[in-house]
């Protein structure tokens, strides 16, 4: 069932980090509702290139929802008007004919705009570099039952590990807080014996880095959890609070 719609786009354009930036509007006709949101952006950019104009810069890579590269704040929501998906998994069938779609970059002090819709998310890399790893080689898959891990813990660790670091949590948060991201990265390792050894140091260093980078304080509002494309739970934030407080008190 092919269905085409005409849309109006209001896109944020910004030359560089110092530029003030502004919205530009574009009209696109005959967009298939079966096309993905990023395919629509490609069509728009083709059109701009053919007109001799500069195409819109936006982040994307795997286009199957696992790399965490795509971003975009679409019509008031990170990753657009659908739940538990990334922008690359958003389809044009979610929009109506003649709808005006507003596209903005992630906005927060921790993620400055580089150009148009691309923001600098290296802050997340810096937080990971502060401790989001296991520092020794833990070898291959251990023998079954050699290192017993309960099903519940394994599930929770796996759920936390599904965080792709896209930054939607920060974009959605009214405080520009990165707590959901940091808590997922701390949890996925703290729940397993291989990561448990360095859990205290990890929590302290990653939180310290997060604070240094100017992310806000968590107010347990939960917008991050709603907008997270991977459905990372606020329970991870409670675990991070526990890990961090216990580690600090033990010092």
């Amino acid at each position: 069932m092919e269905n085409n719609i005409n849309i109006k786009l209001k896109v944020w354009r910004q030359q560089n980090a110092r530029d003030k930036g502004r919205f530009e509007t574009f009209k696109l006709d005959n967009i298939s509702t079966d096309s993905s949101f990023l395919e629509m952006m490609d069509i728009l950019n083709e059109q701009l290139v053919n007109e001799g104009k500069e195409p819109i810069a936006f982040d994307h890579d795997c286009r199957e929802g696992i790399c965490g590269m795509c971003s975009l704040y679409i019509n008031g929501r990170p990753h657009g008007p659908d739940d538990d998906i990334t922008t690359c998994q958003l389809h044009m069938r979610k929009f109506k004919n003649n709808e005006t779609i507003t596209i903005e970059p992630w906005r927060s002090a921790g993620f400055p705009v580089i150009k148009d819709l691309i923001v600098d998310r290296t802050a997340f890399d810096q937080i990971i570099a502060a401790g989001g790893y296991v520092s020794v080689n833990t070898g291959g898959i251990p023998d079954a039952n050699a290192l017993p891990i309960s099903k519940d813990e394994a599930d929770e660790a796996m759920d936390a590990a599904s965080c792709i670091g896209c930054g939607a949590c920060v974009a959605a948060c009214k405080n520009g807080s990165a707590m959901l991201f940091v808590s997922a990265k701390v949890s996925q390792l703290a729940l397993l014996p291989q990561g448990r050894v360095e859990a205290a140091r990890r929590a302290k260093n990653m939180v310290a880095r997060m604070d240094d980078l100017g992310f806000g304080n968590c107010t347990n509002t939960g917008a991050c959890e709603v907008e997270c494309p991977k459905g990372i739970s606020l329970a991870n934030i409670a675990r991070l609070n526990r890990e961090f407080l216990v580690a600090k008190i033990q010092d």
Binding site: R107, A109, N175, G176
Partner: peptide, 11 residues
């Protein structure tokens, strides 16, 4: 931490 610019399309 929220930054100086607001979302034009609201929340």
């Amino acid at each position: 931490a929220r930054g100086s610019s607001r979302y034009a399309s609201g929340n």
